[in-house]
């Protein structure tokens, strides 16, 4: 067991080192893209804790991303909070909202859980629009460059931004790795595999699910807050249904229940959409086709296939 753990740690360190190295060779356009992908992949990693490891399919994860984004953004805009405490507040908002929604939604399961989370997310989105006086609704607002600083670090400067995104991604990657290797992670996987059996081994299934949801919400909130800080924009689009579907798509594509899957899926889909948006405005067609094909032919996703065919120890 410990051999596999070590291999896992080395693999993920390697991935982080590779991403750090890419920073020096990438042209500016892809450099910026990759920073964006890393933040969004952190969002997907959070989604994976719930969906991939605990088996909870949420259709409302945009609300946790948006909780981080707006928790951070509104605190900076209206309360004049500096970047670092605002970031922390964003994480807290994501986790707290997840706890609140979880307390209600986890009373349901399966299809009902999907719809309840979808409805709560929609409520959140509409609430942002309704309080347009504070949130500037659909239009959103910009966080001025001068405010996007932590100490001497200028988060709007591309290299700093890239490494900040990498730091977030690294934290989420290793947090996930530690979680799934822990006894808590084992219980989450047990709940995914056979909830009744887990309960009859003495585990309070509800509490574990809630924990998974809070961890997931905290990661989504961190990603949302970081996104706003690094790219300087806070808008209601990030709370819309589309941003609830995206993490599902990324995780499905990359491989649910694998630690690297969310990163691979996000990277792949980001560039697919980026490339196709050069040809047509109907670029979300790619996302739709991908969802249908994945559910039909590759429900385990890319890294799931890698694990099944090549690398059985892949975490």
């Amino acid at each position: 067991m410990s051999g596999a753990t070590r291999k896992g740690v080395v693999l993920h360190l390697g991935v982080v080192a590779l991403l750090a190295g890419l920073q020096f060779v990438l042209p500016a356009y892809h450099h910026g893209n990759l920073a964006r992908v890393m933040v969004l992949a952190s969002f997907a990693l959070g989604y994976n804790v719930m969906f991939g490891y605990t088996g909870l399919l949420s259709l409302g994860h945009a609300m946790f991303f948006a909780a981080g984004l707006y928790g951070m953004g509104l605190a900076m805009r209206h309360l004049g909070l500096p970047a670092l405490p605002a970031l922390a507040l964003g994480v807290l908002c994501g986790a707290a909202l997840a706890a609140l929604v979880g307390l209600l939604a986890l009373r349901t399961a399966g299809v009902a859980f999907m719809i309840v989370t979808l409805m709560f997310a929609q409520t959140g989105y509409l609430t942002i629009l309704y309080f347009g006086a504070f949130t500037r609704g659909d239009e959103g607002f910009v966080i001025p460059r001068a405010a996007r600083r932590i100490g001497a670090l200028d988060l709007s400067e591309p290299t700093t931004r890239y490494f900040a995104a990498l730091l977030l991604l690294g934290l989420c990657l290793f947090a996930t790795l530690a979680l799934v290797r822990s006894s808590t992670g084992r219980v989450l996987i047990a709940i995914r595999e056979n909830e009744d059996r887990a309960r009859m081994l003495g585990y309070d299934v509800f509490r574990y699910k809630l924990l998974a949801m809070v961890i997931s919400g905290a990661m989504a909130g961190a990603a949302g807050a970081a996104y706003g800080l690094l790219f300087g924009y806070v808008g209601a689009t990030f709370a819309s249904v589309q941003y609830s579907i995206f993490p599902l798509l990324w995780v499905l594509l990359g491989g649910a229940g694998t630690v690297l899957g969310p990163l691979v899926g996000t990277l792949f889909m980001f560039y697919l959409i980026d490339l196709s948006s050069g040809f047509t405005s109907a670029y979300m067609l790619i996302a739709g086709v991908a969802l249908v094909l994945l559910t039909l032919f590759a429900p385990r996703g890319l890294m799931g296939l890698v694990r099944a065919r090549l690398v059985p120890w892949l975490p």
Binding site: R186, V187, A190, E193, N194, M200, L201, Y203
Partner: peptide
């Protein structure tokens, strides 16, 4: 009613670790 997708180790560990 076992965890069919998990190893024997994980199955029994789930019973013992609590």
């Amino acid at each position: 009613s076992i965890f069919a997708a998990l190893s024997l180790y994980d199955n029994v560990a789930l019973a013992a670790q609590r």
